[in-house]
Design a protein around this nucleic acid. Structure first.
Lengths: 149, 149
DNA sequence: AGCAGAAAGGTCAGAGATAGTCAAACAAAA
DNA sequence: TTTTGTTTGACTATCTCTGACCTTTCTGCT
């Protein structure tokens, strides 16, 4: 088990204690585990990505921090199911179908579903090369849904 | 937490007590928090910008002051103002400030604001080349906001 | 009125403190 | 052996704090 796993475990525990939201300093953590600071970035991107159910925000400069939020996971298996069913790409009609479904089954409010659909519409993504839109759409939808689970 | 956050917190509280309008002296504040006066300017420009929902006016000379006003406008106006204020690019911290502000002033529900913020987070857009993210983020946010006016 | 000095606030660039990126070296797994 | 995952460190980006210098306004004196 490498150092990345140890760090990830430490953060998981701290998140449990802290009720799902944790703010820490990259330098501190690096020192505590005797590794280079960028190792923390690696851990964040491989263990606390949106797919894993976390949101990571940060700030540089004096008093900087990394904030990790674990999204609630107990509410809807439906959501998880939907999320898992979304592959690496998602075209607009499929997105529309999925979101309409979720709204109809009241897993999402109509407002949220509409907002999200608009966010991934061809219009909103028009500056993204055609061939990359579906991948991006999948990312965005998954991330938002994960956030709402 | 740095001194800027402390000062900002103090001002927020004072604004609450004072019903949204506050007049204070730069030198006084600096002395109270034991910092250089220009630190106050820094706090103004980073924490009380129009983007955050404040108007800051000031006057020099004897009896000079800094006046901070928390703005409250009707939903339509606020939305239009916000949409117009978004240029061709929008970084994540700005998006967060804008959406937090819209949620606080109840122009958007917390759910929608959160969903949109997640949709334009660095995580969700990670497959988009760094240099194109801010432009895309601006597009998405504007498109969704227009949809909600 | 005109002017000088005092009493504010403003600007900007540099130093310090954090965090992020990326690619190369290394290690583990298939 | 090929592929995938991990670790490192040099370089970069961003946020905060400070101080020297600048501009505006007020007040009192002539």
């Amino acid at each position: 088990m490498g150092i990345s796993d140890v760090i990830a475990g430490f953060i998981q525990e701290a998140l449990d204690d802290a009720d799902g939201v944790l703010e820490l300093q990259r330098g501190d953590l690096a020192q505590r585990f005797n590794c280079v600071p960028s190792q923390i970035n690696y851990v964040m991107s491989t263990r606390f990505s949106p797919e894993h159910g976390y949101i990571v925000e940060s700030r540089r400069g004096g008093g900087g921090y990394i904030r990790i939020t674990r999204v609630q996971v107990d509410r809807q298996t439906l959501m998880m199911h939907v999320i898992n069913s979304i592959g690496d790409t998602l075209d607009y009609p499929s997105a529309r179908a999925i979101l309409t479904n979720l709204a109809q089954s009241e897993a999402l409010s109509v407002e949220v579903a509409t907002a999200l659909l608009t966010a991934v519409s061809e219009g909103a993504l028009r500056t993204v090369p055609q061939e990359k839109r579906d991948a991006l759409r999948a990312d965005i939808v998954k991330q938002v849904l994960i956030h709402f689970v």
